[in-house]
Design a protein around this nucleic acid. Structure first.
Lengths: 123, 123
DNA sequence: GCACATTACATGCGCATGCATTCAATGCAC
DNA sequence: GTGCATTGAATGCATGCGCATGTAATGTGC
């Protein structure tokens, strides 16, 4: 890939990312009281069949540091959307799972999220 | 665009962005003492033929809020890389310009930046 | 079994960001 | 010119992030 091309690609990537995450932040925030990372975590957990996730796994898929995710989970937990539970075979580990309220909130926010994406990726 | 596609696109976008900006942050930080936004500002200013930029214009192209950019410029100014100057015809306005040190620092950091991009956009 | 490295997560801390507000300069209606 | 809305930038404030570190559980060499 030639030099000017990678720069253009990077700038387009940044522009798209700024636009998209900005809109998501506003819409999800105003309508559902969720940040982008909050939703991303709920979304990933809703997809998981067992409904559980190890913290580190989750950190990888949502592109957050372990510490950032730890706090984010604390916030979600305080809001009653997820709950932590000990891991029996490795008691250092922590499982995070959606509560009913969390599943419900995700269900409510999903259309908003997808609508913003559809809008962003066609405009 | 179908529903699953926009989600996939968005996740790929986030992954690419996280990867790229993460690498840039580390490389530029370690080797040149610059953050991604710092470099982006220097890079845009280096491109501008007159070498000057209005704060608001700059905020748009680097996708930062006006307040964030104001502080960023303050940091760069304290580091001696840019300087602010009053705008004669509209004294509310502020011009930002590269200093020689700023131009030099940008010249040094440029290869690092481009190398990361080339690496990121081919892997 | 004891010492030490490693792993999984939580926490202290500093920093960059965005929102809301403020302040000064400008433009505009009259 | 005076009053009022608007614009451009700086600042108070709250928040989320990453890095470094702390703490507890686990694994490993001997």
């Amino acid at each position: 890939m030639a030099e000017p091309d990678v720069v253009t690609s990077w700038r387009e990537l940044m522009a798209r990312h700024a636009d998209c995450s900005g809109r998501l932040e506003r819409e999800l925030g105003e309508k559902h009281g969720l940040g982008v990372s909050d939703f991303e975590v709920l979304d990933r957990m809703a997809e998981s069949e067992c409904g559980k996730y190890r913290v580190q796994e989750l950190a990888d898929v949502v592109h957050l540091s372990q510490s950032a995710l730890s706090r984010l989970i604390s916030r979600l937990e305080k809001a009653g959307l997820v709950c932590r539970s000990m891991c029996v075979d490795d008691r250092r580990g922590v499982f995070v799972a959606l509560t009913d309220a969390g599943r419900e909130r995700h269900r409510e926010a999903l259309p908003t999220h997808r609508a913003v994406l559809r809008d962003s990726f066609s405009g």
